[in-house]
Each structure stands twice: as C-alpha cells, then as structure tokens.
Design a protein around this nucleic acid. Sequence first.
DNA 1: CCAGTATAGTGTCCGCGAGACACTCTGTCA
DNA 2: TGACAGAGTGTCTCGCGGACACTATACTGG
Lengths: 211, 211
Amino acid sequence: MSDLRVTVDIVIFTVRDGALQVLLVKRGVPPFAGQYAIPGGFIHADESLEAAAIRELHEETGVRNLFLEQLYSFGDPRRDPRGRVITVAYYALIASDKLSVVAGADAAEAGWFAVTKVPPLAFDHQQILACALERLRNKLEYTTVGFQLLPAKFTLGELQSVYEAILNRKLDKRNFRRKIALLKILKPLRQYQHTGRKPAQLHRFAAPTKS
Amino acid sequence: MSDLRVTVDIVIFTVRDGALQVLLVKRGVPPFAGQYAIPGGFIHADESLEAAAIRELHEETGVRNLFLEQLYSFGDPRRDPRGRVITVAYYALIASDKLSVVAGADAAEAGWFAVTKVPPLAFDHQQILACALERLRNKLEYTTVGFQLLPAKFTLGELQSVYEAILNRKLDKRNFRRKIALLKILKPLRQYQHTGRKPAQLHRFAAPTKS
DNA sequence: CCAGTATAGTGTCCGCGAGACACTCTGTCA
DNA sequence: TGACAGAGTGTCTCGCGGACACTATACTGG
C-alpha cells in the first residue's frame, strides 16, 4: 500500500457549433508529454471527491455551479506508468454561454474538441471519455440534463440541436416538441429570438407548475 | 496527500426465504467495534479495483464467478475516523444455491440480513447499502440481473419471487410471465419441480436462440 | 377415498409513449 | 416583392405495460 495516489478527472462537455465538444488539456511533462488528456488532478487532504471535482472544474473553466456527476473509478495498476494512481472520474456539463472563460489559470494549453474528432489521449482517458459519452447519452433519455447545456433563455430549435449534437443523429421536430411539452418544465416567454428568418419563441427552464 | 488509503467494499445480495438479504460482518476492532459493516478491505499493490473486489468476495463467501459491478466511490474526508480512506463500492449477486459456503475464512462473524431489517451500520455503510439497493432495483427493470440470484434450473414462480423480493412489492403473475417470455431467454425443460402442490415446469437461462 | 387447498398456468382490454410522416406560416434578405 | 429558411403544428400506428379472474391438478389430511 506504499505510495498510492488518487486523482479526480473530469470530462467537461459543452455544445458548440452544433457539435458535442469536450475540454482537453495538452500535457507539458512526461509521461505522454505533448498529448492531450482529460483535465484532472490529485485530491487534497481534506476535501471530498466531489469538492475536488468542483475545484478542478473551477480551475479549468473559471465556472462554478455546473451539472456534475460521478462517473466511474479506474484503478488498473498499470494505467499510469509513474506508479499506482487510481482516478475517480466525473463528468460535467457547461452551458454554451458560459464557456468564454475557457482556458483558465493552470491549463498550459487547453481546447475544445468535437467528441467525434478527439486526438489520441494519454493514459486510459479514451476509455474514460467513452464511458462519459455513454452515460451522458443514456441520461439524456430519462432526465433533463440536456437543459444544463443551454443559456437561461433558449428556443426549442436550440434545445433540439443540443439533443441532436449529443445523440449524433437527427430527431423528428414534432415528436421532439411533443416529448418536451409532456415534461411540462418549460415556460414560454413573451420574447422572440430574431437571429434567423422567422423569429422563434424563447423559453425558460422551470419546475413544473405545481397543481 | 500523506497517508491516503483505498478500500473496496462489496454489498453482497442474495434472496433467501423470499426476502432480499445482504451479507454483513461484525467488526471486532474499533472504530465501530461490535457493529455490523459491509465486507471489504484494502486493495493490494498490484491488483485492479475489480480484482480486489473479486478477491474480497471470494474470501467472504468462498464463491467465484458472480455478478459483480462497480457501484460508486465514497471519499468524504471524515467517513473513517482513523484517517483518509476512500472506498470504491461494488455490489454482487449470489445465487441462493451457492450460499451454503457463507461465513468463509476471515469473517469473524458474518450473517445475512434482510435489507428491510439491517442493524445500524459502521462508517457510511448505510448510505452505500442504500445506493446499492437503488442500483439493483433499477437494473432489474432493464437488464436480466435477476437471473443471477437463481440456481441453474428454476421455476417461473421462483423467478417471480426473486423479483418481488428485490422490488419489495407483489407483481401480477400474468404480466410478469408475459414480460419474461418476450425476452426469449428462457428454455423450458422437460422436468418438473414437485415441492409444492401442483408441479411447476423448470426453466433454464439461455441466450436467445439465434435465428 | 374424497374433499379441500395451494400453487400452476393462461388471454383480453385499455391507455400511454414513441416513431413515421408533410404542410403552412412569416420575417428577412436580396 | 419574391424567394427562402426556419418556426410551428396533428394524426396514425404499434409496442409495452398495467389491471383483471378463472381453470387445472397434485398433494394433504381427515
């Protein structure tokens, strides 16, 4: 049990340019120097796993209060050539209007990559990313995580684009709108977005109106 | 990061006497001496998390080749009064016909407890157990984990009892049988079980017959 | 031996959710 | 002012799942 260390790695997703993207940092030191990796770091002596994840997330993106969920723990004895390192992986979703703050303090070189076009990753990070993607896609079906990726006000078209970007396939507009309407968690606003041809009604995420 | 340790804890379920039960061990040393806890132990230097779980499971029950799945990692800094201990929790299912070997090598005092009647547990093990229960119940709905709890040959009535024990509610016999039949994973045998009043046909778990 | 009983086994109706599918409307821009 | 791009809107159908009740039969005990 001599020198065992525990890290927290965070798969940070956003949707930009109509594609699901993930934040990766370029490693400056061996092993895997020059390769991209999922951001993460060692846990401090007196912080919980989740607190460590929140801290790392803030360091990388400058943002707090995101959706964050524990994913899985990876502990193959040879996953890190430097020694025994177990990692507890998390994944997070950041709204597209908050990610201007990207490439924060300590990230030597960080960047967003479409999940369909990630470069080779260090360690077992390819596996972690695959695990996060699978979880996100599953959660999308039976929860409302998708809303975490949008600004406070958004159109139904934008919401559908987010779903399509995550699932990587086209959805039927009418079926999608029906499904969302059934959830009763959107409040239509008296505002319209005038960026396209015909203005689209803006909506706000809201708990279902209690009886 | 000085002295951080990592354990693997395993919530081991079985169905006995028509109730979902969990294996607990009585602690012989402080902290929480005399209280029950979920079996577990430290990971060895050169074994993966899953290998550690398999090893612990074998030590506790004498059984290998069970259903085993990683559950969640718990890392609150104060979850163990002795110091910083992070635990990676797993849960396992053991078939009712294999659990004669219970109370294996190192368990000072071990016993099965109905999940509705567990004593107060050491550390945050109550929380871990709750987490495992929730996962098991969810998995039961959309996977075939339930079959892991039965011997190779079983009746449909026994299968339904297992489901009812886990979900802790009665199920409709005809709906249940229809649902199972739709899965096409059971092979009816030319054998009947004569323990009750009217003999019941035995079935065997089998992959769906490929076209 | 027979009456009682406990468990095995079986089919229909209904409601909900989800997929397939096409047209009109309208503000903007050229 | 005409073309266009995106907004918005209903119906049919199918599969899944819940609610619901009776017959069949082997074993048991008197």
